[in-house]
Design a binder for these strands. Structure first.
Length: 558
RNA sequence: GCGCUUGUAGCUCAGCGGAUAGAGUGCCCGGCUACGAACCGGUAGGUCGCAGGUUCAAAUCCUGCCAGGCGUGCCA
């Protein structure tokens, strides 16, 4: 249950009713706007507040405080979730939750358990999140790591927000990069066999190419020497591709990321779906031929220039294939919404993809993007570019060798996607208070130990308490914060900003630590002890539900 | 040049139309005979990049500048 939302809705109605009375009494003119009630930043100003007076000052030509006072005189809090309403400041009306609101929150969590925080929709929209989609030509990068966490967590959050979610990895196993891979492998293969071959300038220079060539020779010797260059490159690429895909799958699984499907680009080609899609674009009248190439009139859809679909050498561009892929997602498979998680270095794709979708006659708004900025690794205040151990650029698997999984997932997710992420390697492995992961997990472990002690004393964690005894400011504050989880999930889902949940959990842990510091549980009077125990249980549940969304553990002991 | 994006405390970042701009970290100070001190509390620290504009109200919206990042291939 979203108790914040329930309170806001009720408050809206109370305000509308009061306004109706004021209008019929001739005290206020008609045509007011009733702004949605907002959470007060400062508890001194109550829990929810209305800016009705301020918002209508211009229209009514009355001082805001007078408007607020008039409206306030007609607000009836009888049988509501609020205990008080008062006019304050320049013209605010501030409301305070009544006891039954707090009790409702705690009862809801006890009843909902693992489902607390979720929103249920009658007809869930089908959403695909496509993420990582790293090139299968080499190891995954730190950028892929951030994309992996953001995509996977967004998918989880969308599920919790009531969507039917599908996770997909688009595997670029065709096209130019595969032929570059073949060329690079061939050069390394021949070099390893003693031939003096120049390495292609546009080839993949990483040492992993040498390693693969060596591993091929170890497995099969020099049997490719008799083949044509083309066949040799193909054979080497086909040898490496599945190995690399398996390695990626393995690294991602280690990272807690799994996909419903790895969609191979080659399928789009082999099935003729790319041909068919390009034919459709032509039929829609948006293509033309020039310089032996086939062009899309993308300028008709807001792009600066037209784009090539089929190159003069007869091959499709990535763009043509991507349009087919998005048609497959939206039209063939019928997802209501598709979200592509892209690194900011690919942000140019967003307008191009939308243009392609629109040229197909589909609504481009069904395609959305989670753009994230790149990652800067830092250790001891210095930017880290290379792996200490290997001297090469740091890969996802290097990172996982060094950083605990929970820390990696938390750190990659803890910033708003559109800000550059500074990843502090030193901090991530630190088991202390300044590490936010441990701070959150410590709160959970602390609750677990305390509850174990209480149960030994015979305190039940299955019976309700007299929640009206929870009146200390740290108790009340904790409950208020617990109640916000469903709303936080909805906001994170709406903005594609999963870092809200990271911040929420840190805040929740803070509220719990404060409560723990100020309010003894074990030594309290039995009735109060019972109520506080149930508050701790509710906090534990909320921490668990939040951690599950982020894909991190909530340990019983640390 | 054009497009996207970011500029908030020493550092890393929240806040994105409402009441005195917040947190973590770092500096300094204080708190365990205790259900885990991996915790809590306090002091100090800010022309919210700059300049205009809209509004009862601007860090938040609009415009123009300045600075950083990214994009602008018959690469993907």
């Amino acid at each position: 249950m979203n108790y914040l939302d329930i309170a806001k809705n009720q408050l809206n109605k109370l305000l509308a009713d009061a306004y109706g009375i004021a209008v019929s009494a001739g005290e206020l003119p008609e045509g007011a706007v009733i702004p949605p009630p907002a959470l007060s930043k400062d508890v001194a100003n109550g829990d929810l507040s209305s800016t009705f007076g301020l918002a209508n000052a211009g229209a009514f030509k009355m001082p805001p405080r007078n408007i607020a006072t008039l409206l306030h005189s007609h607000i009836d809090l009888e049988n509501s979730l609020f205990v008080s309403a008062e006019v304050a400041g320049a013209g605010y009306i501030n409301f305070r939750y009544a006891q039954n609101w707090y009790e409702g929150v705690l009862r809801a969590i006890a009843a909902e358990g693992d489902n607390f925080g979720k929103t249920v929709r009658e007809r869930p929209e089908r959403v695909m999140v496509e993420f990582v989609s790293a090139n299968p030509t080499g190891p995954m990068t730190i950028g892929n790591a951030r994309g992996g966490v953001l995509g996977d967590t967004l998918a989880s959050i969308l599920e919790a927000a009531g969507y039917d979610v599908w996770r997909e990895f688009y595997l670029n196993d065709a096209g130019n990069q595969i032929s570059v891979l073949g060329k690079s492998l061939e050069a390394r293969f021949l070099q390893a066999l003693g031939q003096d071959i120049e390495f292609p300038e546009d080839g993949y220079h990483g040492d992993y190419i040498k390693d693969f060539a060596a591993s091929y020779i170890a497995d099969f010797g020099d049997n490719l020497l008799t083949l044509s260059t083309e066949e040799r490159q193909k054979a080497l690429a086909s040898y490496v591709l599945p190995k690399n895909v398996a390695a990626m799958e393995n690294d991602l699984a280690r990272y807690g990321v799994r996909f419903d499907r790895w969609y191979a680009e080659s399928e789009l080609h082999n099935s003729g779906y790319v041909d068919e899609t390009i034919a459709l674009l032509t039929k829609n009248g948006y293509t033309y031929e020039k310089d032996d190439a086939l062009w899309l009139e993308s300028t008709k859809f807001g792009l600066e220039k037209d784009e090539v679909m089929r190159k003069s050498n007869g091959f499709y561009t990535y763009y043509a294939t991507d349009i087919a892929y998005h048609r497959d997602k939206l039209e063939k498979r019928g997802f209501d919404l598709v979200i592509d998680a892209l690194g900011a270095d690919h942000h140019g794709h967003t307008v191009r993809f939308r243009a392609g979708v629109e040229a197909l006659g589909l609504n481009p708004n069904r395609l959305q993007f989670l753009l994230f900025q790149l990652v800067r690794l830092v250790r001891d205040g210095e930017v880290v570019r290379m792996s200490k151990r290997t001297g090469k650029s740091i890969t996802l698997s290097d990172l996982l060798d060094e950083i605990p999984l929970d820390a990696a997932r938390f750190f990659f997710g803890m910033r708003n996607p559109d800000v550059h992420l500074e990843f502090d390697l030193g901090l991530a492995v630190k088991a202390s208070s300044d590490n936010p992961v441990y701070y959150v997990q410590y709160a959970h472990a602390r609750i677990c130990t305390m509850i174990a002690v209480l149960e030994e004393m015979g305190v039940s964690i299955d019976t309700e308490g007299d929640y009206s005894l929870l009146t200390h400011e740290t108790e009340v504050d904790l409950i208020r914060h617990i109640a916000m989880l469903p709303e936080e999930i909805l906001l994170a889902a709406k903005d594609y900003d999963t870092s809200r949940i990271n911040r929420y959990l840190v805040e929740l842990a803070t509220r719990y630590h404060r409560f723990y510091d100020k309010c003894r549980v074990k030594d309290a009077e039995p009735a109060l002890r019972q109520a506080r125990t149930m508050l701790a249980v509710a906090t534990r549940q909320t921490l668990q539900n939040g951690c599950r969304l982020l894909g991190i553990t909530a340990p019983v002991k640390m």
